[in-house]
Design a protein around this nucleic acid. Structure first.
Lengths: 336, 336
DNA sequence: CTGTTAGCGCTTTCAC
DNA sequence: GTGAAAGCGCTAACAG
């Protein structure tokens, strides 16, 4: 493998000069520079980045850490992150912890040391041990979601509470629903708990009582949503509309409702959260809370680079990204 | 940042001994080792991987290079790759070329030099320049799909031709279709051209003539599929079934057919390719060719590690992964 | 079993 | 403007 010495020898200069020429150092005679660049090209020379990293203590790599690779949400977020990283000339390391909590912490510790210049964290929640690690971190970190749980860390995310609250209020006030069921996500999941709170608060503020029988956990999965929905449909008294805390569970509801031979939205309405690709294609189109997923990734990356590039200690920032409504055919039409 | 010297000093040994202890070199007294490990832990020491990489000339990182991040296919493949990489203690670098051909080549060149131990390539096709680069490559490389176009490189992929051929033969012989339309993918896309060939061969072998008016390009996208399908539906003589070369275009067909107020499968059948998540949720469920996407990623990673870990020059390998059928409600039922 | 020494390939003072 | 030399943090002979 051709290295800086080879180029120096060929060009009859010292390796220092080669290094300068390659790094656009102004204090090098233009003709010398041209000559060096020419020879470098001829020799097909490219600097060894590892050696460079060792001395500059920078890697130009950021890590994206998450529990599990796959799915719509992941691929959208990473698209946003990638876009910004690419423009900043950074490489993206994707590190899944494969659902094992411990591995996750190991990964982080490993990353803390060196190898990456910054970390984007996308986790359903953080263990105390993890918070500890993050608290005395040296590497810039941005967490996606979770501003409430770890105020010491930069976060980027949507307002789960507000997004849900608005949607539920809309269902009640504009569509006239008064009997609302809830299929919630895992209790350890930060998003899930926030969404549930938004749901409950909206009911309360509108003087609607919450029926505990109509609140079931669906594990954020299609199957979980299907099972939860089936249980609700088996009750004597059913809600008029089910709010599923994510679109996957809403899709599960469609399955359950179909198998009960009921109609959406006439017999029962379904509302989701996330506005995933799928939600536009199921019949009827799903009413859901729009989450600008790509933007989350983008903003997270931007915030991270801001941290990386700033000399001084920057203060912690929390970027909120606003949600929106998608009104599909899975809810009854606007009351006149 | 604490380094190997600090540990050596504390432990009253040389840095060499510390290095040995940390790398499980047997030739180090158990008690010395224990002592060193203890001190390393106390000092919160972790080896600087960059320094290690510089000397070992290994990074424990593989790169996954693709044109654009996002979508179902991407996220499934990467899941498979990640799984295997994780088990092999490797990190995964995701490098999108952001659809710019040049950038892609730059990226590769950059990677060739150092920084990664191996590369998984997922590209619609390869430019001559790229083939050149790959031909005299030093880094192990596995390409996803494309065995025909670049025999010199390890590949992993499905048999696009066979998968299509079987499906079309099934449509003709078992379902009794004789008028088949084709919405093909971009001509520069390797998968797309192979699928088209499989389609044409199946028609030919079954003595069915191919109507050129029924063959339209749909760009592998939902919108492209919708437009292409609309054009077909506007013809005086229409096919009985449309084979879309991927599921996204098939989903586009659904939209077009809906807007023409036609029924699937009574008025016209739709068949896709890929068996993406979405295909199970659209109504009616899509008849499509199943592609074990996660397996492709897994096999690609396995093959790559085989290359990385083998001392001698290994011969080029081409792993074929078999496809299957998913019979949904978008085609008429089996003829009696 | 352990220490000494020489680099890995590069950047960066410090002289000239 | 350019070269010599030091050294980033580590591993790997080579001695002992």
């Amino acid at each position: 493998m051709v290295n800086i010495k080879d180029v120096a020898k060929q060009a009859n200069v010292s390796i220092a000069t080669v290094s300068r020429a390659l790094n656009n150092n102004k204090s090098v005679l233009p003709e010398t520079k041209q000559k060096i660049l020419k020879i470098a090209k001829e020799l097909n020379y490219t600097p060894n980045l590892i050696a460079r990293n060792l001395i500059t203590q920078k890697t130009n790599v950021i890590a994206f850490i998450l529990p599990e690779v796959g799915g719509d949400y992941f691929s959208e977020i990473i698209r946003g992150v990638d876009e910004v990283a690419f423009n900043s000339n950074y490489q993206l390391l994707v590190a899944s912890s494969h659902s094992q909590r411990n591995t996750m912490e190991t990964t982080l510790k490993f990353l803390e040391k060196s190898r990456v210049d910054g970390i984007i964290l996308m986790l359903p929640s953080l263990s105390d041990q993890m918070k500890d690690i993050l608290a005395n971190h040296t590497t810039p970190i941005v967490a996606i979601n979770g501003e409430g749980e770890f105020p010491a860390i930069n976060t980027v995310g949507i307002d789960n509470f507000q997004g849900t609250y608005s949607m539920i209020s809309f269902l009640i006030n504009s569509l006239g629903y008064s009997k609302l069921g809830l299929i919630k996500g895992p209790s350890y999941n930060y998003d899930a708990t926030k969404r549930r709170k938004g749901f409950l608060k909206a009911l309360k503020d509108n003087n609607i009582s919450h029926n505990e029988d109509w609140e079931i956990e669906g594990g954020f999965s299609v199957t979980g949503g299907e099972l939860a929905c089936s249980r609700i449909l088996s009750l004597n008294e059913k809600p008029e509309v089910i709010f599923a805390c994510n679109d996957m569970m809403a899709a599960g509801c469609y399955k359950a409702i179909q198998s009960f031979n009921l109609n959406i939205p006439d017999d029962i309405g379904v509302v989701g959260f996330d506005h995933v690709f799928l939600s536009e294609f199921i019949t009827p189109k799903l009413t859901t809370v729009h989450v600008p997923t790509v933007d989350i990734g983008r903003e997270a990356a931007k915030l991270l680079f801001k941290q990386i590039n700033s000399e001084e200690e920057t203060s912690v920032e929390h970027t909120k990204i606003s949600t929106g409504f998608i009104i599909g055919g899975s809810t009854k039409s606007q009351k006149k």
